[in-house]
């Protein structure tokens, strides 16, 4: 976690305590469904990071292909994160019009549209 690393030494111990409590709280209070989605999010994040590293370290030569790949990661990430927000029972009050099933339908539609543009851009 970025914020934790940037903290200063006097609060470091407290931060690490806070971090462990946070992690425990996450493990305890998150349903398996959400964990499933979170795992997927982590996967997408790593894919994106590797692609970005390739662009920065090696070459950005087919720039459109890089953008397509990276944008597919980013897009899929935010769509999945949106799905997570929508199916999260804690957010139920915010999404009156969106049932979890509707959220999944939205997610598939968004993904298909996204993938269409990704393939179109891939070259």
């Amino acid at each position: 976690m970025a914020p934790a690393k940037s903290s200063k030494t006097p609060v470091a111990s407290e931060t690490s305590v806070a971090l462990t409590t946070m992690w425990k709280s996450y493990i305890q209070h998150t349903s398996d469904r959400l964990k499933l989605i979170d795992a997927f999010l982590v996967f997408i994040m790593f894919s994106g990071i590797v692609q970005f590293a390739y662009c920065v370290l090696v070459t950005n030569f087919p720039f459109n292909a890089f953008l397509a790949g990276f944008a597919s990661c980013v897009g899929q990430f935010v769509l999945t994160a949106s799905l997570r927000a929508q199916v999260n029972p804690e957010n139920r009050s915010e999404f009156n019009d969106v049932s979890p099933e509707r959220a999944f339908a939205d997610f598939t539609l968004g993904s298909i549209v996204l993938h269409f543009f990704v393939y179109n851009f891939l070259g």
């Binding site: 795992a39 996967f43 894919s47 590797v50 390739y54």
Partner: peptide
């Protein structure tokens, strides 16, 4: 890098 790009699949499956 191709291997690296594919490696998150392992992470995903593991998780």
């Amino acid at each position: 890098f191709a291997a690296l790009v594919l490696s998150p699949w392992l992470v995903l499956l593991g998780l």
